[in-house]
Write a protein that binds this DNA or RNA. Structure first.
Lengths: 231, 231
DNA sequence: GTCTATAGGCTGATAGAC
DNA sequence: GTCTATCAGCCTATAGAC
């Protein structure tokens, strides 16, 4: 139904219809992927799901990869939403927010294994594309930025990041944030691919990681109990 | 050529020939996988490589999965060898050995991305099978045990593992070891699937992780500088 | 034992009728 | 625009000739 007062040319109506079908196809793709994984997304199955012939899909998407990219993008958007709301709901201090962020990340991965697998464990193209396109509105880039910002907030709050390299220097916010991310990804990806294997639960592994990493930072203002463990 | 003094019956000779062909097929499989990845291992390509027809492969292996299992097993053996030699070459103290183990693990993964991918990032069957079969001679189980042992050596050397859970209790050796493993896996798997993405190099990320985790342990005997960071 | 030939299935993608 | 029909290729696995 056109908005009152707007002129709806036949062209526009057609455009809207096209977009609606596109979204319908994407919704079906997401459903198939979250249920059976990316490998199960075939053009035939997808066409059957939306009630078209396989050939019709190609009128709206160039190929299977373009669909995967779009679904991937919405997967990053879901992740971003989960992380954002966790950050917003947490208390004000930097440490608490970082803890909340980590917990939300792991929870998202475990609750959406197929989506997580698609966006972080499948073809590198989707992952690389996120980094390559520095568009600030990309949900993947924004999720990444959320983590970096949290590490910077830690520094701003007076925490000193752990030393690294020879000669030793303080780790940068990006290095520290990526260390956290890689650690969390290790838990999630192992659990996603083989739920039984790390015999300990993510609820046990994650706090050990996060608290160790947070513990490796030292607070500058309150130097009463300096906990440097080396040099 | 039979060993001098042994009686080589026709039966034995045939057995040896069969085994030789089996090994030849496995060698070709490893070559294909390390070059092009597990996905590129097809019966046709494999047959072409060893100079047989596709059908001939089925005389020596039940199916593709059996080949994958065998290659996977040898992958675990390679990993075990890399870890063992690193442990043997390191100084005696528990901390140094754990550091050496971690460095060797990451190095192995980065130097053998396709093998690493096969044994830790593909079909869960291979990973689960290693855990399921508690056979002590399985290379995968032995590599796992090597890590657990290192964590236990840390305890034996007087280190207290970090607290976890509510109410807080000290983490077990298995929990601590699996935390280390998951962290390292996070680095390697991200780098393997998308070398460009964690923008920091593994050489930077890995020490931050390992030193943080080691730093979260406290040495009991020398309690002069207790570095509890909480409670 | 090893081969050729082939069954029977799947895939992504396209040409051309309506 | 949407369809049917099909291409060209891949796959695992097997039957039966030599």
């Amino acid at each position: 139904m056109p908005v009152k007062g707007e002129i709806t040319k036949p062209q526009q109506r057609r455009e809207q219809a096209r977009e609606a079908i596109r979204q319908e196809i994407l919704a079906a793709s997401r459903l198939i992927i979250t249920r059976e994984g990316f490998g199960a997304l075939t053009m035939r199955k997808l066409a059957q799901h939306v009630g078209y012939s396989p050939a019709a899909i190609y009128l709206h998407f160039r190929n299977r990869d373009e669909i995967a990219q779009d679904v991937s993008r919405s997967g990053y958007a879901e992740l971003l939403a989960a992380l954002s709301s966790a950050v917003d709901a947490s208390p004000g201090d930097a440490v608490s927010r970082l803890r909340a962020l980590c917990a939300a990340y792991v929870r998202f991965g475990l609750e959406n294994p197929q989506t997580y697998s698609l966006i972080f464990m499948e073809d590198p193209a989707y992952l690389a594309a996120v980094l390559a396109q520095q568009a600030a509105d990309d949900p993947g880039a924004r999720a990444y930025a959320l983590l970096i910002d949290s590490a910077e907030a830690l520094i701003a709050a007076g925490h000193k990041l752990p030393k690294v390299g020879k000669p030793p220097r303080a780790a940068t916010a990006v290095e520290f944030a990526e260390t956290i991310w890689a650690s969390l990804h290790g838990i999630v990806s192992l659990k996603v691919i083989c739920p039984a294997f790390p015999t300990s639960s993510a609820e046990v592994l994650m706090p050990i990681m996060v608290e160790s990493l947070l513990g490796s930072t030292t607070t500058a203002p309150a130097a009463e109990n300096g906990s440097q463990r080396k040099r």
